[in-house]
Simulated scan of single mutants.
Amino acid sequence: MPARWNRGDLGIVSPADFIPIAEETGLIIPIYQWVLREACKQQKQWLSEGYPLKTVSVNLFVQQFYQGNLVSKVTQILRETELDPHYLILENYGKNRCRHS
């Protein structure tokens, strides 16, 4: 499920409304780095509290797969949050799926 934006005055804003704007303005990558970091932090907290969780899945946009630093960014976030990588699943999301050239 894509991220939801909870804006106090508007309530829950659908990804269909904010993702196209984030893509157009170049903010999609920083937003999803934040989403990844927060998901890893939450997963680590739940595991530390003893919840028997298996994995957390985070959707990435195709633009992130074409960045040269995706692996290093994910590695950095895993180190920062101290989450073991086997608890994280990265999935491709979005209308522009990866294609073979």
Rank of each mutant, 00 (worst) to 15 (best):
Q45A: 08
I77P: 05
N59C: 12
L60I: 06
Q64L: 08
Q33I: 02
W46E: 07
Y51P: 02
L36I: 03
P30Q: 13
V74F: 13
Q33K: 13
E49Q: 14
K73E: 13
I29D: 09
E23F: 13
S57Y: 05
S48V: 07
E38V: 02
Q64E: 09
T25Y: 07
Y32N: 11
I77R: 03
G68W: 08
K44S: 09
L53D: 08
Q64F: 15
Q63T: 13
Y51T: 03
T75H: 10
F65R: 11
W34E: 07
S57F: 01
T55V: 13
E24F: 08
G50A: 05
W34Y: 07
L27W: 10
E49P: 02
R37V: 00
Q76W: 08
V58K: 07
E80S: 02
N69G: 15
Q64A: 07
Y66K: 15
S48M: 11
S48P: 13
G50Q: 03
C40W: 00
A22D: 11
L70V: 05
F61C: 12
F65V: 04
N59R: 13
I28R: 07
Y66A: 11
Q33L: 06
Q42S: 12
Q45K: 07
R79I: 01
Q63G: 14
G50V: 04
L60C: 10
L70W: 08
V58Y: 07
Q76I: 03
V56M: 06
E49M: 09
E23L: 10
Q42C: 04
Q33V: 02
A22V: 01
P52Y: 05
C40N: 00
G26M: 14
L47Y: 00
S57D: 02
P52L: 07
Q45S: 09
A22H: 04
V74M: 05
Y32I: 04
G26A: 09
S57C: 09
C40A: 00
F61H: 15
S57P: 02
A22G: 04
Y66D: 06
R37T: 01
S48L: 12
K44C: 06
V35Y: 13
N59W: 08
W46N: 08
V35A: 14
I28Y: 14
G26T: 09
L27F: 13
V62N: 12
Y51L: 15
K73R: 11
L47P: 01
Q63S: 12
R37Q: 02
Q64G: 12
V71A: 08
I31Q: 02
V74I: 05
V58M: 06
K41C: 01
S57M: 03
L53G: 11
G50S: 03
Y32V: 03
Q63N: 14
V74L: 05
V35S: 05
N59F: 13
S48N: 11
Y32H: 11
